[in-house]
Simulated scan of single mutants.
Amino acid sequence: MRKHVLLVDGMALLFRAYYSTAMMNNFMINSQGLPTNAIHGFTRHLLTAIDTFNPTHVISCWDMGSHTFRNDLFPDYKANRSAPPENLVPQFDRVKEMTSAMDIPNVGIPGYEADDCIGTLASHYQDEADVTILTGDQDILQLLDDHVRVALLKKGYGNYDTYEAPRFIEEKGITPKQMIELKAMMGDTSDHYPGVRGIGEKTALKLLIQHGSLDAILNNLDTLTKAQRTKFEADLDMVHLSRQLAEIRCDAGVSCDLNEALYQPEREKVIAKFNEFEFKRLGERI
């Protein structure tokens, strides 16, 4: 039987879980004074996805600090992000205790984002396994491949917008890898890099479909409208830099032996961690 690996964007799940409850001032402080709302929501998301996709192996990927190689390339990368909320900070390390209790490896490497870890592992595994990536970040759609699909979290638990490469190509008119060049042109307000100022998604997509690649566009600027050519010429350095920022690296230097990621949690160990965090109703899910 072919293996099926679930790669979890731990940061995406944790932040989503935190904000979905924090908006209602539900911080779930346990008897030790530890806020646990994000850990609890993360665990619910994780267990629900495992029930839904039935993977044979599970790995959770994490950011390891806020500074990455992208900040070295562009100091303003993600500069618009505020510091994490005070009640979330103590949950960053404790949530990994939960995944460890479930015998799910935690993977991360300083200087890279969780996305880069996911990209690297997906590229390693896809020859021998089907890979499902669980995230809320559409940037990861660039990793879609023959044996790699993406499940985007939607509102609530158990609701996913699941993409495989053919669906992406049909909807967008470009390949998943071309999403890197699309973002290089249109920029990313969330990650705080501009791309080509004045070129939005609609124009960038049209040009990419018409010319086939960003390099082809740049080599044929004289075929663009005067306004478009002026915008590209003003931001030539930035569009090349934005391409580097947009690309999820698949050579981040992380690895995880799939034998260590086999999903066979020991119920007693998981229940003990649930009890420690005072999660009374999750035990029946294991």
Rank of each mutant, 00 (worst) to 15 (best):
T68G: 05
S31W: 03
N106R: 13
R149P: 04
T203P: 00
L214H: 14
A17T: 05
R281Y: 13
F274H: 12
D161H: 02
I118D: 15
D146F: 05
H57Y: 05
T56H: 09
L153W: 00
R285L: 13
R149S: 15
P75E: 02
T175A: 00
L258A: 08
C250S: 12
K96S: 10
I174A: 01
T135D: 06
G158Q: 04
I109C: 12
H192E: 00
P265D: 03
E266R: 11
T189R: 11
K269I: 04
H147W: 05
D51S: 11
E247S: 12
V95L: 05
P110V: 13
L153V: 01
M1G: 14
L143W: 04
T189F: 01
N26W: 03
K183R: 15
I59E: 12
P75R: 03
G65F: 10
P265R: 01
E128H: 13
E128M: 14
G173S: 02
A216D: 07
L47Y: 08
T203L: 00
D222W: 11
H40W: 13
L47S: 10
P194N: 04
I39W: 08
D251L: 10
Q91P: 02
T223M: 02
L134C: 04
K78I: 01
E201Y: 06
F168I: 06
S213D: 04
L144Y: 02
M179L: 12
S66Q: 14
D76K: 02
Y160P: 02
A261V: 10
H45I: 08
F53R: 15
D63A: 03
T43N: 11
M98L: 15
L141W: 01
A17C: 02
E201T: 11
K202W: 00
G283M: 08
M24W: 07
V254M: 09
I133F: 14
I180R: 12
G136R: 09
I217C: 08
S60E: 06
R81W: 01
R149D: 15
P84H: 07
K3L: 15
G195D: 05
S100H: 14
N80M: 03
L14F: 03
I286F: 05
V5L: 15
I140H: 01
D51G: 04
K177P: 00
L88V: 04
S100R: 15
K155F: 00
G212D: 01
S60I: 14
L34D: 04
L236Y: 10
A101F: 08
E164P: 07
A101R: 13
A122C: 15
S100L: 14
H147R: 14
E86T: 09
L218W: 08
N30Q: 03
T21Q: 12
G212M: 00
C117W: 02
I59P: 12
R267L: 07
